[in-house]
């Protein structure tokens, strides 16, 4: 495992910590898209079906358990916690799940490595992760006052994807015969989705302004 992969995973973990901090400590999920969080829970549930059958390392297994556990915890908080759920911007978070789930599943049936249930679901999770941030980005654009934790959460998620790209470049040059086109192309698409957000995040940060996205 190279440094970019480790930093990418840690950034991903930190994004979850930031989000849980906001939800658990401040008891607010304002500006957070439940649609995106539900899509992430679905991503992890379909990708980590191999958790007990396919052992890579203790590190991988522990991280899988953490991402599964936290993603469902976040969804639970936003849907059921009596204080947190009242801070959810339901009227603004209008993106429809099926508009992302159905095309991703169709694509996974068409383009996959092996035609087995586990492989198709794994591929589906890769495609879905690439676009799962979409409802969150739409919600951010509609939010007038984006708080620091929400801005930082999305920034960390984007940074995690960027670091994974660097990890793949390192692996390509250091591991003989290493290639994974499905993951690479999805990862590039996923990182590109953050480009616009990054531009405004850095611009506002440099001008010492509060984060706001043009609508």
């Amino acid at each position: 495992m190279n440094i970019f992969r480790l930093c990418g995973d840690m950034t991903h973990l930190l994004s979850v910590v930031v989000l849980l901090l906001k939800i658990h400590t401040i008891k607010s999920c304002a500006g957070i898209s439940l649609k995106t969080q539900e899509l992430y829970a679905l991503v992890f549930a379909t990708r980590y079906l191999d958790i007990f059958t396919h052992h890579v390392s203790l590190y991988n297994t522990v991280m899988k358990i953490i991402f599964l556990g936290t993603s469902f915890t976040i969804v639970w908080y936003m849907r059921h916690h009596k204080v947190v759920r009242q801070t959810y911007d339901k009227e603004q978070d209008t993106f429809k799940h099926y508009m992302l789930i159905i095309p991703c599943f169709a694509l996974a049936l068409l383009i996959k490595t092996k035609f087995t249930p586990l492989e198709v679901l794994w591929t589906f999770s890769i495609y879905l992760e690439a676009v799962a941030i979409f409802p969150q980005l739409v919600l951010l654009q509609r939010t007038k006052n984006i708080d620091n934790l929400t801005g930082n959460y999305v920034f960390l998620l984007g940074a995690y994807r960027g670091l994974y790209l660097l990890n793949w470049i390192v692996r390509y040059f250091t591991e003989k015969g290493y290639r994974q086109w499905i993951t690479w192309i999805s990862g590039i698409v996923q990182t590109a989705l953050y480009a616009d957000f990054f531009y405004y995040y850095i611009k506002c940060w440099r001008n010492n302004e509060k984060l706001h996205l043009p609508s």
């Binding site: 991280m63 490595t113 015969g177 086109w181």
Partner: peptide, 10 residues
């Protein structure tokens, strides 16, 4: 081209 690695990333 076929992907060559087992799924070893998160």
């Amino acid at each position: 081209t076929e992907d060559t690695k087992e799924h070893d990333e998160l």
